[in-house]
């Protein structure tokens, strides 16, 4: 583009930079995420319908019993679809972090990721598959409750500082609204700072993960970047 006047190039560049700044304006996606999670659930194949098709060939008594089960399943499905994901408040998360740091009684010491996964699975068979941290050391695991939903917690250590990693089902838990976003290597992190506890959250592949501690946001993102989903 040729400029009629050298001032126009300066003006254009300044306008470009001002518009580019709009992209760093935080976007609260909480409500949209909740709506999408609900919509995605409704797009899943309905196993109960497949089952009911097969039931046509069953003996009548078995069919009646099976239909009762199917009706129950449908009821359960509707109940679960009707509930919105809960918002994980940063206050709740700070509480969880402090309890983990204080070495609460439920904390199980572990030496590696396999042990942590086993411990969580024993306590909570429906737990989401934990993303594997590839940086930092795993020290302990436990279960907690955030916004009336179970979450798995790992105590990690990175650069000599403790971190709490909380993992829940993203259909049950979404991030709270006040946040800014940081994008790195194609992943988008939601960042919070509450009562001196820094938090980095990400939702990926059906899982909601929060990493928190007194480390800098960059260090927490480094740990989050290393998570293997």
């Amino acid at each position: 583009m040729k400029y009629e006047n050298p001032n126009h190039e300066r003006l254009d560049e300044a306008t470009r930079r001002r518009l580019a700044r709009l992209a760093s304006k935080p976007v609260d996606t909480t409500r949209l995420e909740a709506r999408l999670n609900k919509a995605i659930e409704s797009q899943q194949p309905s196993n109960h319908l497949i089952q009911s098709t097969r039931l046509r060939w069953w003996r009548p008594v078995s069919r009646v019993a099976a239909m009762v089960a199917v009706v129950g399943l449908i009821g359960l499905l509707f109940t679960s679809m009707g509930s919105n994901p809960a918002i994980a408040s940063t206050t709740d998360l700070v509480r969880v972090h402090r309890e983990v740091m204080a070495g609460e009684p439920g904390l199980v010491p572990v030496a590696n990721f396999a042990q942590a996964t086993d411990a969580i699975q024993r306590m909570w068979p429906q737990a989401p598959k934990l993303p594997e941290p590839t940086v930092g050391q795993i020290k302990a695991s436990c279960l907690h409750n955030v916004a009336d939903h179970d979450v798995a917690c790992l105590k990690l250590e990175f650069n000599g500082e403790p971190i709490t990693m909380v993992v829940g089902h993203s259909r049950e838990i979404v991030c709270s609204a006040a946040h800014r976003q940081v994008s790195r290597d194609g992943r988008t992190y939601l960042v919070h700072d509450r009562d001196g506890v820094r938090m980095v959250m990400i939702s990926s592949q059906g899982r909601w993960v929060c990493l928190m501690g007194s480390l800098s946001i960059d260090e927490l993102i480094e740990v989050a970047d290393g998570l293997r989903f």
């Binding site: 949209l32 995420e33 797009q43 899943q44 994008s183 194609g186 992943r187 939702s203 990926s204 592949q205």
Partner: peptide
């Protein structure tokens, strides 16, 4: 048609980060 697990996995991995 229902969305397959693989479609959902690719979607959350590739597209979800661009939600904002």
């Amino acid at each position: 048609d229902p969305v397959s697990d693989e479609q959902q996995r690719r979607f959350t991995q590739l597209a979800w980060p661009y939600l904002a």
